[in-house]
């Protein structure tokens, strides 16, 4: 994979975005296996209903993993210096997640030419599930 050229990038440029398949119960079962997070809130509808909620919902870290893919589809993972998100809403079964990123700053950090990215993982109605940022080194 070749890195994007630092000089050719501008603040405001968008990363190639993508929309996931609808989050299903199978997605959450697979994520439980892959992540090791078997919390019943994500898997066991009986448990969830007994606790007064309508249905299981997605692991927050599933959405962050999708945003991680947004980054690693754009640059080799070794270019990522930092990556963070705030969890702002729960993802329900059936929702597709739209992952977008935008360059908000060009900066030098630790002697490297970097870009700061603003990241969003939202449903198709535009409700943000996760808002994040990342710093990626490009030189």
């Amino acid at each position: 994979m070749t890195k994007p050229n630092f000089d050719a990038l501008n603040v405001g440029d968008m990363l190639p975005s993508f929309t996931t398949e609808p989050v299903s119960r199978l997605t959450l079962a697979l994520y439980a296996t892959g992540s090791g997070d078997h919390h019943p809130l994500h898997l066991d509808q009986d448990f969830v209903r007994a606790n007064g909620m309508p249905d299981v919902f997605a692991h927050g870290m599933l959405g962050m993993a999708y945003l991680g893919r947004l980054l690693t589809q754009w640059v080799p993972q070794s270019a990522i210096r930092s990556f963070g998100v705030r969890f702002t809403a729960i993802t329900q079964i059936g929702e597709r997640l739209v992952c977008t990123g935008r360059i908000v700053e060009k900066l030098e950090q630790g002697g490297e030419q970097c870009v700061r990215l603003e990241l969003t993982c939202a449903n198709e109605q535009g409700e943000a599930k996760h808002k994040g940022d990342a710093v990626v080194a490009l030189a």
């Binding site: 996931t20 398949e21 997605t27 697979l30 994520y31 296996t33 892959g34 992540s35 090791g36 599933l62 993993a65 999708y66 991680g68 893919r69 690693t72 589809q73």
Partner: peptide, 14 residues
């Protein structure tokens, strides 16, 4: 083994 399942769950194709 675990990374394989994580990739499958997150739609990773690389």
């Amino acid at each position: 083994w675990q990374l394989k399942w994580f990739a499958k769950a997150t739609g990773e194709t690389n």
